[in-house]
């Protein structure tokens, strides 16, 4: 990886854009909570607040806060002098970190291969692809990790982790 001066890299998102995105997400979250709360009565009954009361007002607090943060982002001077929040280099590094992580989850949960297979695949990928380790070292570390987890959780602590067809095929329950 070449050395880049971060400021030389192209800006991907300004601080303002990021702030607007965050506020919009918070707004959506608050609205969802309010919708969920409306399934129940939200009033103040003769014996105090009804089931929907707290969720409803907490949702409102999030909405009010989000609208406030949105206005701050759009109109306040605060971020005018900090135009760049994330540049292309940083975004790429974050994406390179998140992608294998997502792969871990997809492999473990969607393909139902379990945590052990997924952790070996994940460690191998990251060490070979991003860490530029040699295959033997990567193999040793990734399988070693799985083995340590297996001994600790399954045999010693008796906490079964999620397993898939590979373990069943190997006869490990």
């Amino acid at each position: 990886m070449e050395q880049h001066d971060p400021s030389a890299s192209r800006a991907l998102a300004t601080r303002r854009t990021l702030e607007v995105i965050a506020a919009a997400l918070a707004l959506a979250f608050g609205a969802t909570i309010i919708l969920g709360a409306l399934e129940y009565r939200i009033g103040w009954g003769e014996r105090g607040p009804e089931p929907g009361y707290f969720p409803f007002w907490m949702g409102m607090i999030v909405v009010v806060g989000a609208i406030g943060a949105l206005f701050e982002a759009l109109f306040a001077r605060r971020h005018a002098d900090a135009p760049m929040a994330i540049n292309a280099d940083q975004a790429r590094r974050v994406a390179l970190f998140l992608l294998p992580m997502l792969g871990f989850l997809v492999l473990a949960l969607i393909f139902k291969l379990g945590l052990y297979v997924a952790m070996v695949a994940y460690m191998l990928t990251v060490m070979l692809w991003q860490g530029r380790y040699r295959l033997p070292a990567a193999l040793a570390v990734s399988f070693g990790t799985a083995a340590v987890f297996y001994f600790m959780f399954e045999l010693w602590l008796h906490v079964p982790l999620m397993k898939g067809p590979v373990e069943a095929w190997l006869g490990i329950h």
Partner: peptide, 10 residues
């Protein structure tokens, strides 16, 4: 028993 594991699983 171990060899039968996939079968048992199914």
């Amino acid at each position: 028993m171990n060899k039968l594991a996939p079968l048992a699983f199914a």
